[in-house]
Design a protein around this nucleic acid. Structure first.
Lengths: 135, 135
DNA sequence: CGGTATCCCGGCCGATACTG
DNA sequence: CAGTATCGGCCGGGATACCG
């Protein structure tokens, strides 16, 4: 595994990869992971391996195309492992890699916090809308 | 206004808001926070208050329109606080609310981990592309 | 079951111009 | 400086049809 080099200050010039820079590849990977379907897919896989249609049911609202596309991007980034069994009917399992698991932990921390913060958020929205009216 | 006595803290039991459900408002807020510009904007504000164009420079590549739109969504959700001073020239500061700061911590944990994982990610990409041949 | 290929629409997003 | 208004391209993403 890699060394947990402690870098918590933003704007640090020490890291070779800076997500705030427009051309940094880390921005792409971050979007794969935080994107509309990426975050939910990674989150759904944290429980364990799942099959395609199983995943599709869990990530409510995702289309076949988008799930397939999302899984490919995540597989390419080494976040998801795809294991196909040449049986009939075919069975394919998707599961997080060790890297993916670490990402999922941090993602779920965020997701759960957001879920638990929705009452304040909804209150803030009402307050905002009341103040601004329609504009 | 009557306030629900229920705590908004993370109770491991069944949450009223489930991001995996298609119609849950938490999914919108999650997207505001994890979206292409939302994640970078929240991350950039973790250091402290910033002015509009200052923020625009920090979040490399964002347009005025998208930054404005992103900030409005975050403000409406109670994640960012906007403070305008009626001076000339005008000066407007954006800063995270306490809620926003908690979200930013979790987001930055993810961002920094992704930045620090880019070498394995890039290696995985090359391996994937080599296998598939570039299709 | 587990996908890929194709069509196509809505809206995300950038560019530009304008206001206070 | 701190935005809003408008236009237009492009692509995210849903629907459908089709393969192994």
């Amino acid at each position: 595994m890699e060394t947990p080099a402690r870098t918590e200050s933003t704007g640090s010039a020490e890291l070779p990869f800076d997500v705030f820079a427009r051309d940094c590849p880390s921005r792409e990977t971050l979007e794969h992971v935080t994107g509309r379907w990426g975050s939910l897919t990674v989150g759904a896989l944290y429980d364990g391996a799942r099959r395609f249609n199983e995943l599709r049911r869990r990530v409510d609202g995702v289309s076949e195309k988008m799930l397939s596309q999302t899984l490919h991007a995540l597989e390419r980034d080494g976040i998801v492992h795809r294991e196909a069994q040449p049986t009939n009917p075919p069975r394919v399992d998707y599961e997080l890699t060790p890297l993916g698991r670490e990402i999922a932990e941090r993602l779920l921390s965020l997701i759960h916090f957001v879920e638990g913060s929705m009452n304040p958020v909804l209150a803030a929205r009402q307050s905002y809308d009341a103040t601004r009216g329609g504009r």
